[in-house]
């Protein structure tokens, strides 16, 4: 049975500042969702809160994965349960090799009950898989022994995120502006990879983006629009299209209350 992720009335703050003010969202495995909205509307906050970043405090509401309470889980357990966040700004970890990092990650995600120190997945199996996935992502084999994101270009970091996505095969992936900072060719390539992976793995994908390229390859079945920390509209692919061409003015007009809160949030964030 396909998995289901249900977010209800989610309130999240960073420090003293409330960012999400009651988000409702439902996703089924295999669906492609687009999450749009002006800067500061809370899109990334939603992604981070789902992944369990300690700086984001959940003040209310719930996130359930097939009925399991995600908010009760440590970030590591969320990953093991099948949630994946592709970072907008992937972190550099000096001294930690891509290959070693991924082998640990995969061992845990494929064997969620694994404890530290217990056996990792077989080297032979892992090597073959990593080599294949790297070649699909057009990543040179030597990257396997480079330090994670250390000295990588923006594009290389993003491809590394997609490589992890391909290896970890989550049930739900949240792509936080994965297309930002990439040139057209790179965006096309990443977009195509996401499309293929989501089909192959029956992945649910939430795409956070300002651009439409990613959505041309990954036509969303559902588009959500955030404003002032709430999802104010939900529609089909045509809604994403409309926002690309017309911007958020109409949205603000239709949701004056959220627009005020959005303006306040923009002020706080200095957007």
């Amino acid at each position: 049975m396909p998995s289901k992720l249900t977010i209800k009335d989610l309130h999240v703050s960073v420090g003293e500042t409330p960012i999400l003010r009651g988000v409702d969202l439902e996703m089924n495995q295999g669906e492609v969702h687009a999450l749009m909205g002006p800067n500061g509307s809370g899109k990334s906050t939603l992604a981070y809160a789902i992944a369990g970043h300690p700086k984001y405090t959940v003040d209310g509401g719930s996130i359930l994965l097939d009925g399991e309470d995600v908010l009760e889980m440590e970030p590591s357990d969320r990953a093991r349960a099948g949630l994946f966040l592709a970072f907008q700004y992937p972190v550099t970890i000096p001294g930690v090799k891509v290959h070693d990092f991924l082998r640990h990650a995969i061992s845990n995600v494929r064997n969620p009950d694994r404890k530290e120190g217990e056996e990792l997945i077989s080297m032979r199996e892992f090597r073959k898989e990593l080599r294949d996935r790297m070649s699909e992502q057009r990543i040179e084999p030597e990257f396997a022994r480079r330090y994670l994101n250390d000295g990588f270009s923006g594009g290389e970091k993003k491809r590394m995120e997609i490589l992890q996505l391909a290896m970890l095969k989550p049930k739900f992936a949240f792509l936080d502006e994965t297309d930002s900072g990439l040139d057209t060719d790179a965006v096309n390539f990443v977009s195509e990879s996401v499309r293929r992976l989501s089909t192959e793995n029956e992945m649910g994908v939430l795409i956070i983006t300002h651009h439409d390229r990613l959505l041309q390859y990954n036509v969303p079945s559902i588009t959500h629009v955030m404003l002032g920390g709430r999802i104010v509209e939900t529609g089909g692919a045509e809604l994403a299209q409309e926002l690309h061409t017309a911007g958020y003015e109409k949205i603000r007009e239709r949701h004056p209350e959220a627009a005020v809160e959005q303006a306040e949030q923009e002020q706080v964030a200095g957007v």
């Binding site: 992944a51 369990g52 970043h53 300690p54 440590e74 970030p75 590591s76 969320r78 990953a79 093991r80 994946f84 966040l85 970072f87 992937p90 972190v91 970890i93 930690v96 070693d100 990092f101 640990h104 990650a105 995969i106 845990n108 995600v109 404890k115 530290e116 992890q164 970890l168």
Partner: peptide, 16 residues
């Protein structure tokens, strides 16, 4: 956080 979001435990992350 980056490490734990990939399924590593905090301890594993720190060790790494």
């Amino acid at each position: 956080f980056y490490c734990t979001s990939r399924g590593l435990s905090e301890y594993e992350a720190m060790h790494m």
